[in-house]
Each structure stands twice: as structure tokens, then as C-alpha cells.
């Protein structure tokens, strides 16, 4: 079973009924109701139960960002979220990033234009994370490098330092960072 992984101890056992739950998620606009092993994390549900393999399993411990998706519009590490706890939530993966009638999201077009990847494994996470960054900055959320004296609530301008800081939770082992920063710059309103 796909749920039996990364236990590290080889002591995994099949889930009995009291270890399973129903959960309903709206994934890229489509309602999905599943009965899941309570251990199921969102990343495995997306990849193995729904066949949405855009979100990637890098470290599986919330350290690399390859699994980043949007939950209720906020970027999160899907490897650390239990699917059962997300009952009723809206999930957006890289497959659903582009709007209706759009083949690609503007970030995806910018990543392609700027050659913002080599192997591409971290790219879905980078894209979802960047989408989250744009929303957070527009909502006035500060970062570690934002001037603390900046008034609250006003959109934070995203210069290169801001983009680098805000995307620090997404690792790229190929080192495509300079082009990733340029691609995000291209999409800043």
C-alpha cells in the first residue's frame, strides 16, 4: 500500500476502520471524497490516489519545498499535512495553477521564457510557492528582509532580495536560482 512508507521502522500495519476516515477536498476545482488511512498526507493522496503527480516528493520532511501546493490559497508543504485534517479545504496544485481558458499561468510562462530550471523536479513547488509569495506580498505580509518600519497592510514591493528570502523554502539542487528570481520578477504586477 502506498500509505506504508517512510515509517523508518518497518512496523507499519494496515489501517483498521478506526484508523481510517472520510475526507472531502476540492482539488483544482473538483470535489473529491475519499476514505483515507489517517496517516495519508496530502502529497501522497494527490500523487497516488488522484494521479496528480505535479507536486513532488523531495525530502518528505518539509525541508525542500518540492511538494508545495496551495491550501485555501496559501502555500504549504503537502508532505506534512494529514489529508484527514484538510476535510473541506480547497487545494490547488501546479496542474490547476492556470486560470480558466489559460494554458499556462503567467509564472509558468515566465519560468519557460527565463529557463528557470534544469531538471525541473523542484519547479512545481517553485511555481506554487511563487504564486503564494505574490499573494502574500500583495496582502502586505512582511518578510525577514522587509523594513520593519513599513506600514502594515500595504503591498510589499518585491525586489530581488525579497524574492530570494520569500522563496528560501524551495531548494533547487541544480542551482537555477538566478533565473527563478528573474522569472518571478517578470510576473510582479
Amino acid at each position: 500500500m502506498g500509505s506504508q512508507q517512510h515509517g523508518g521502522s518497518g512496523q507499519d500495519t494496515a489501517a483498521s476502520p478506526r484508523h481510517r476516515s472520510d475526507t472531502t477536498l476540492r482539488v483544482n476545482g473538483t470535489p473529491r471524497t475519499l476514505t483515507v488511512d489517517n496517516r495519508r498526507v496530502l502529497l501522497d493522496l494527490l500523487r497516488e490516489d488522484l494521479g496528480l503527480i505535479g507536486a513532488k516528493k523531495g525530502c518528505d520532511h518539509g525541508q525542500c519545498g518540492a511538494c508545495t501546493v496551495l491550501v485555501d490559497g496559501r502555500r504549504v508543504n503537502s508532505c506534512l499535512l494529514l489529508a484527514v485534517a484538510l476535510d473541506g479545504c480547497e487545494i490547488t496544485t501546479v496542474e490547476g495553477l492556470a486560470g480558466d481558458g489559460e494554458e499556462l499561468h503567467p509564472l509558468q510562462r515566465a519560468f519557460r521564457k527565463r529557463d528557470a530550471f534544469q531538471c525541473g523536479y523542484c519547479t512545481p513547488g517553485q511555481l506554487c510557492s511563487a504564486a503564494g509569495v505574490l499573494a502574500e506580498a500583495a496582502a502586505g505580509h512582511p518578510s525577514h528582509v522587509t523594513d520593519p518600519a513599513r506600514p502594515s497592510g500595504e503591498p510589499v514591493p518585491l525586489d530581488r532580495e525579497e524574492i530570494r528570502e520569500r522563496l528560501s523554502g524551495n531548494l533547487c539542487r541544480c542551482g537555477a536560482y538566478p533565473h527563478i528570481v528573474e522569472a518571478v520578477e517578470d510576473v510582479i504586477p
Partner: peptide, 21 residues
């Protein structure tokens, strides 16, 4: 505005994704 050290400490920790959760 009133307890800036708390905001600064939070922003110095983890990543954007982790702070959202």
C-alpha cells in the same frame, strides 16, 4: 507596531510554507 521583536522572530524562523501552517 507594538511588539516588533515578536514579528521579527517569527519571520526569522522556518520558511513561508511552514509559517503558513
Amino acid at each position: 507596531d507594538r511588539w516588533p521583536a515578536l514579528s521579527q522572530a517569527l519571520l526569522a524562523g522556518a520558511s513561508g510554507q511552514l509559517r503558513n501552517a
